[in-house]
Nucleic acid binder design. Structure first.
Lengths: 198, 198, 198, 198
DNA sequence: CATGAATGAGTCTTCATTCAT
DNA sequence: AATGAATGAAGACTCATTCAT
């Protein structure tokens, strides 16, 4: 059926657009480039998307959904706060390293979003940060950690994630596991948590 | 003298452009907007700049120079590694918090730079990171710190700086001194440095 | 039968197109709008029409045919010139008032017709005006009227018809009968005809 | 100075646009055509106009202003109602015959106007009709005329004007004076006015 | 120095039309 | 018959840049 083909084209458009938005930025990317990358004419794009803004919006919302899904499932069955926190950090660093492109777009193209999509994305972003913050709080409440400032601590976590996405390369000198392990130690220390405990 | 006026106009253009690049991004900013903000016509811009790219290049190089000057003078007369490191962190966080606009541009518009300017900016950026890394290394060598990975540690520092620039507001709930102090503590812990020692 | 359904769809397309051409004009109406109004997809239109121009041509030719049929049957069995003329005016005003949409399209979209259809429509239009002109001439020849200029008089008649179509609303303050009666009087006076005579 | 040149270009654009809107209609006219007719590039148009709609709006408002100015000055110093009415009709027919292009645009492109310009044009149009209607009313009040319906009578006048614009050609068989004289007689008769009286 | 008209390439988007399913 | 993806041309409009005044 052509139904499948259509879906494939729509996906290809999102993929191509994400690649180009990553490389050149949303504003600097023309739909001509997107169409060329997909292998269709510019006008044909409009059989699958309703406009350039919406395309960006969908991509960014999709990214945030993936991120939320990942973090939620990572902590799903951990009842111990410290255990959940460790799992969350693992997921957090790993996701950012493995989805560098998407993470970068998610961080840098917020200002190109139309108001409505912006609100949605910001809401999801707040939700994500809320999850991290609650985990930090719970670890602190349990008495295992000596958190200086929960808000700042969550910011620091977000910062590390975004930054890993910038420099980490799969073919670089450190394996992803090593990176995750090193960052985990650093974060634990930051919070006055003794790594061994967890 | 009209010489002065000219200089003032040229500066006003850089200021206006930086504001707009920050708010809307380089690609999304038109020289018409810049001219309007300065209060002149588009054509008149070309009496002061030679093109849009060069304008961006100058802004970014200027930012990097300011940053380098700041960090250098902060550690100028500190002979003790730990003392110098503490001063550098203080400067690093403070600069990023106080120059949010410039820092943001410096991080997000690299890809809009023409090759030549890009090389210059990247060189300065590498230089800056080199300074941080050397400080970390020296502190580690002295034996006061237990650094997990020097490179990662410098990355983490850079990440925190960029991120502070995003969220810190002069009128927010924390004073700049408090922010600096908290971040300093967190970084010291990360490195296994006992704050009290320094 | 699907034969009937097909005819019904074809008619619905003409109806929808006429509505839209009336409201927005031929050039400003897209086939997408037409299809949407009918409740089918754009591509499906081409099972019933062969193109946008032809659609317009058919509509306009249909309108002219209706008009010609109406005027002819209105004067069919009137042998007295004055009687026939009165009947024709009645029909003329009434038709224009009752078919405002079609009349408006017929007047305003001539320039959007392709040459061939244009010739056809203009021929029918000339034919219609010829009928009016002949009636005027006959009334004048009979000596009952004092026509200043037959051509101008026929133009005036055409003008009134087109204009009635613009302002007359079925739910307005005057009934159609009143409008017809008033216009008839005015035209008779214009021609120096005493209304009572006829 | 270039000031004059600029004004001339701006005028040339309005002229060219009016010609093309007349010939092909607003929707069917592209700014490319307008620019080509003026002898500049499409983009250059935007140094003089702010958009296609505004261009149309300015043209139509200009037309209505001209028409209002003409009718007002035609009746300026006539104190006798019948005399003023005769002068108004003269002006009305003459203006419509001599400004066929503008009148046609004024009548046919109302639906292409943006709401704001539409309101302005409709207001001016109402004002014009109001003037005609008041003249008719005054003639009727004076007792010289037997007007069947003032509103209809004013409509009829408007209709004749629009229609004259359609068929009258300066090089046609009738001189403009003859046309005006014939129409005047016809209108007087319509209103039961004895031409000789005035 | 400032102006503003002109340029020409480029932007997103819409459209009538075709065609395989 | 109906669908919907694809096409290619065209639309209005914006932009960085140039240059005569």
């Amino acid at each position: 059926l052509s139904r499948r083909r259509s879906v494939r084209t729509a996906d290809a458009i999102q993929e191509a657009a994400a690649d180009l938005f990553y490389k050149h930025g949303f504003e600097a990317t023309s739909l001509r480039q997107v169409a060329a990358k997909v292998g269709i004419q510019v006008g044909s794009l409009y059989n699958h998307i309703s406009g350039k803004d919406v395309l960006l919006g969908n991509i960014m919302i999709g990214i945030m959904d993936d991120l939320l899904t990942a973090i939620r499932s990572s902590i799903a069955e951990k009842s111990e706060p410290a255990e959940a926190f460790r799992a969350a950090i693992d997921c957090h660093i790993r996701f950012h390293a493995e989805h560098a492109r998407d993470v970068f777009i998610g961080n840098s193209e917020l200002r190109s979003l139309e108001p409505k999509a912006l609100r949605q994305v910001v809401a999801k972003r707040d939700e994500y940060e809320g999850i991290l913050r609650e985990l930090i709080q719970r670890v602190a409440d349990e008495g295992h950690a000596d958190v200086i400032d929960v808000r700042l601590q969550s910011y620091a976590l977000m910062a590390l994630g975004s930054h890993v996405a910038v420099w980490y390369k799969a073919k670089g000198p450190m394996s992803l596991d090593e990176v995750v392990s090193a960052y985990t130690k650093m974060i634990f220390r930051q919070m006055g948590l003794v790594s061994a405990e967890v």
